[in-house]
Amino acid sequence: MLIDRITKLFFGIISYTLVAVILLMITFLVVAGLDNISLEFLVSFPKNSMTEGGIWPSILGTFYFLSIALLFSVPVGILSAVYLSEYSKESRLQRLVLTANNILAGIPSVVFGMFGLSLFSITFGFGTSIISGGLTLGIMSLPYIISNTHESLTAVPKSYREASMALGANKAETTFRIVVPASFSRILTGVIIAVGRIIGETAPLLFTGAAFYITRNPSGIFEPAMSLPTHIFVLSAIYPENVTPKLEGSISVLLIIVITLFISVAIRRRRESKKLEG
């Protein structure tokens, strides 16, 4: 019918225009920085009030924060999800954990930052450091990992568990040898999403773990570190125009990392949904 064709055309034009604008912006930002990326840019320290040198400490720092965050959120998140889907039957604790997870997922990242400041930096005395920032990011990413793992575990057919139990395996053996391995690939997808979020996160790091400008590597986890997103913030909002080439290069590097992660997630998801369809 004519009206359907008009609706489809109209809605299609809007959707594709939107997508084109976004693609254009991403491409623009990635390409703008490409000229400034060189091996030297990637592996040297910033020099001369950030106008020369590179982003090596920010790359390294991002990696430190990420490692600490995952060290906390992957085990706690996956085990919490295992509890939710395998060990709890409609109990009070289950409802509490589910509700807590939903609420955590909605809390703004800057509020996690304040919590991290108050608990890790001040109460525990870690100060502004890699461990304060990393743990803060870890707590922030907990709900991503729990929700996704919970979903993956519930997708494992009941017959798997029954077959394993029927063969004489106990609960732990069934859970950790059968159910978790069966959903391993989907759990990993969730972890990659969390990695993407942690890598791009800025606000909570500003007052828990970020150094704006360092000229040597932190000597341990109780020292602050630079990170790529905070570096981008500092270069664009605090330093004058003459650092723009460095800013463009940093944005490019961060976008390339994040886009790679999210494309890999998209590919994995597509493969998983094909597997389900058989």
Partner: peptide, 20 residues
């Protein structure tokens, strides 16, 4: 896929784009 990528853009990058 594009909407998924869009969701992955770090907010600091958008901030920088808006600012510059």
């Amino acid at each position: 896929l594009i909407f998924e990528l869009m969701a992955g853009i770090p907010s600091v990058v958008l901030g920088s784009f808006g600012l510059k």
